[in-house]
């Protein structure tokens, strides 16, 4: 507990101190929620019913042209879609055939359709004024620097994280931090906690997320409250979401980065956490395991330096005294 300091109110409420992007993130959310950018419930186009008749159910029926009988089969579970998620996604107003070939309207689907190249995000959004606010090109640029692209190349597409069917710009439309974090982290988890999807990209053994992060206490709580990208990307001031996933060696580890700057936030959460734990677990146990220590010095550079100065002065005083004691013995 050496060198502790007291932050001045000016520091606490100085918006320049909100440079950490975690704070920037919270900041943007609040701005967005104030300005009321909200996703409206969009009804899906009726044409989609044809596809969804089969693609939302466990089973499907079709007219077998060979036997001329009605056949009932099991649907491939990976091709079963969630209608509600589609409708609330950014492309919820689309017809399926806006992206997929209209030849899909017949079943059995033509085998050649498998070869159909599908549009990427950039194909539609690149250079489009309407979406300038999202900075698609800049995102693409950043993404190409990321470890994913560097290691796996073109096979790692935007769609590997952003499902074109369901993607929502949550950090712009939601005001609930927990919802944003959940949605965002699910993009990473859908692959990093799923062997099958992971092996689409890599033949390596998937490292276990909770083992990799076992140095991080309260892992579950952290993963519920901060986005993976908070620690794994570099901040780009001009982008609200950095897409440059850095090599693991460069991931943020330093607790103080977040904890000293957000101490107000965390302080108010302590109490709640603590009381909750105490009612659910044994009493003595929770008192001993109490985490009410605000991590990270309340670092104010001035006070930090003062305390270091006091410390060094004490040492210097002792050193000089000691030298005299030896000389004058």
């Amino acid at each position: 507990m050496l060198e502790s300091e007291i932050r001045t109110p000016a520091f606490l409420f100085n918006s320049r101190a909100m440079r950490s992007y975690f704070q920037l993130f919270v900041f943007i959310i609040s701005i967005c929620s104030i300005s009321g950018i909200k996703a409206q419930e969009k009804p899906m186009t009726p044409e989609n019913e044809l596809c969804l008749k089969c693609h939302t159910n466990q089973t499907f029926t079709f007219q077998n042209t060979l036997t001329d009988a009605e056949d009932k089969r099991m649907m491939n579970p990976l091709y079963i879609m969630n209608k509600d998620h589609f409708a609330s996604g950014v492309h919820g107003k689309f017809k399926c055939t806006d992206c997929h070939s209209s030849d899909y309207e017949t079943y059995p689907h033509n085998a050649e359709l498998k070869l159909e190249p599908l549009s990427t995000c950039l194909d539609c959004h690149g250079g489009d004024e309407q979406y300038a606010a999202y900075q698609f090109e800049k995102i693409d640029e950043e993404f190409q620097k990321s470890v994913h692209f560097q290691k796996s190349g073109e096979s790692f597409t935007c769609s590997k994280c952003h499902d074109q069917h369901y993607y929502q710009a949550k950090s712009r439309t939601s005001s609930e931090v927990s919802e944003i974090v959940g949605f965002s982290n699910e993009m990473c988890m859908s692959c990093h906690s799923n062997n099958n999807k992971f092996h689409l990209i890599s033949d390596e053994i998937k490292p276990e997320l909770n083992k990799i992060h076992d140095w991080l206490p309260n892992q579950e709580l952290h993963f519920r409250n901060i986005r993976c990208i908070e620690c794994h990307t570099e901040v780009v001031d001009s982008l609200s979401v950095s897409h440059n996933i850095l090599p693991k060696e460069q991931a943020l580890r330093n607790c103080v980065e977040c904890h000293s700057k957000n101490s107000m936030l965390i302080a108010s959460l302590y109490k709640y956490e603590n009381l909750q734990n105490r009612t659910s677990e044994g009493k003595l146990n929770t008192i001993i395991a109490n985490k009410s220590y605000v991590i990270g010095a309340y670092q104010n550079p001035l006070l930090n330096n003062i305390s270091i100065l006091i410390f060094l002065m004490a040492l210097a005083g002792i050193g000089i005294h000691l030298i005299f004691r030896i000389i004058k013995k």
Partner: peptide, 10 residues
């Protein structure tokens, strides 16, 4: 205490 105040896994 120093450990908690300056917690840093590096």
């Amino acid at each position: 205490g120093i450990n908690m105040q300056y917690s840093n896994p590096n």
